[in-house]
Design a binder for these strands. Sequence first.
DNA 1: AGGTTCCGGGG
DNA 2: GTGTACGGAACCT
Length: 639
Amino acid sequence: MVKRNIVLLDIDYITYEEKPVMRLFGKVKGENSNDLIALDDSFVPYLYILPSGNIDKSIKDLEELKRNGDLEFTKLEKVIKKDFQVPTEFIKISFTHPQDVPKYRDIIWDLDSVKQLREHDIPFYRRYLIDNALVPMAELELEGELIDSFETINSNNDSLEIFKLSEPPKTANTDFQQFRMMSFDLEVRNPHGMPNPEEDEIIMIGIDSNVGIRKVISTKGDEFSNDSEMCFIEKVDSEKEMIESFIKTVKENNIDIIIGYNSDLFDFPYLKDRAKIWGIDLDLGLDGSNIKFIRRGFNNAATFKGLLHVDLYLVMRRYMSLDRYTLERVYFEFFGEEKIDVPGDRIYEFWDNGGNELKNLFKYSLDDVVSTLKIAQETLPLNLELTRIVGQPFVDVTRMATGQQAEWYLVRKAYEVDEVVPNKPNMTMKNIKERGSNVGGYVKEPEIGLHENLVQFDFKSLYPTLIISKNISPDVLVKENNSHNTKFEDFETGYDDIDNIKEEELSSDMDNDEDYYISPEHFFKFKKEPQGFIPSALEDILNERFAVKNKMKATDNPVLKKSLSVQQQALKRLANTMYGVYGFLRFRWYSFECAQAITAWGRQHIKKAMEEAEAYGFKVIYADTDGFYAKYLPEMKKE
DNA sequence: AGGTTCCGGGG
DNA sequence: GTGTACGGAACCT
């Protein structure tokens, strides 16, 4: 029996002898930061079936399908799980292979005795992380034994350990970890418009890192060999050697995270195409595997097994709100300095002309990677914290929309409280039209002019607070099923209410019913007891944030303080995103009623606060959603 | 007005 | 890979 503590970098599964084997990619904690791939063949795919009537009838039907050879499964179990907090009997059906789930999904769903399938679209590796309470980028404890080799792992990396788990891994701690990071960037000689990998060679590969490597690999640069300012140039003889040197640099320095800017769409596809011309493999995977492009929505993510590739461009689009997200613009936003800029269509001229222009091109290439790394060091800590909170792989989290981060956090939470997660809603264009759009926060257009003596007022996390205090959650929403009231009519009447609403009605205390909180404008009813799933998850987040902030105050260690500060920011972001899960289509906890109730209560609160301020002699100049600016005019004060 | 297409970043 | 997705601006009809 061998034990290892590793930091879990990434996870996937492969098929071995027709069965799935999870692969945990990590680096061993301790002096020797060996890489390690842990294998676990004990985890089994499953989903839940909600019977439409008698559960035994459903089981009979499933067994019948199996006898006919139309369905294969390994196990049927009756289980009690909560569905919107109501204990409900489900059938848990287990399969041999994750692929059996999409394969047999439809045939099961088509059975008359089956009402719904649940948790049938949770990727296998995510299921594994959730069910074992594992957190990526944190420390795990492994028990098992070392083995010499395993199918699909063809690495010539001597320091790689292959580890076969004898029991499920455990989370050792979720403390801050250090990672070896490297940024890179290509420059291409493209005299005819955008670079074309069939013709246009790579002329420079810039590299910066937090492990002491900072250089530009290029086929030119001899002319600066006596220029001490230019000692970052690594001169090679061909593009082939340039690419080989890049690969060697990544491998030899044991890089955990490789960072580019728009590298999903430009640098890695280009590098792959050029490498192919020279017969070079981009085999940077921990298991010796090649780069792989994975379709993720409208992007093609460049990925390696166990080497984490972050495309900072995608991260920045979520990290801050800007009109443009060029590297120059983002860098300026952070550091207030302009970057060296060489227009893309003139790079070849600088290259061809040599001399001072070539020198500037080298500097530009280095500046690009230095800037990329600097921005990464500013932003990745937050994403690492989000990874540990959300509990899904780092590369996934850096590419996820914030709403998805919230959703996966909730999926994990649901597992912890024994809830079966809702399916993704299947909204058609027709539904959306019928539904109409939600009214947002209250906005009072600013009064034009220069104002003095302004006071600012805002609600601290208005929406999260409302979700908790009014228990806004689909599982405690009372749906009135009047037979004469179709869903469509409900929406219609809802809208009439908004248009004809009177101020008095708005401020009246409609939500003081004994058992329910009743939303203004639409009068949606939310039970006061029990606490809804989303409010409870949100409260956990806010409590956690409070605890982190207290730890922050208590420590004098600046490194710990910084890391805790990032942690509480991540929690704040997640809390603020939670409102979004109600309003966005395709999300599992989508609830238009909840989204409407939140903004309606929000409008009520801000208006009430404004009224009160005005009674004290403040004149509101501008208001938006959760706060306003007001000017003190004592003559306005009501006696 | 209401629908549909295009685009982001990169050289 | 227990896949197939974004959101706003610009441009149609």
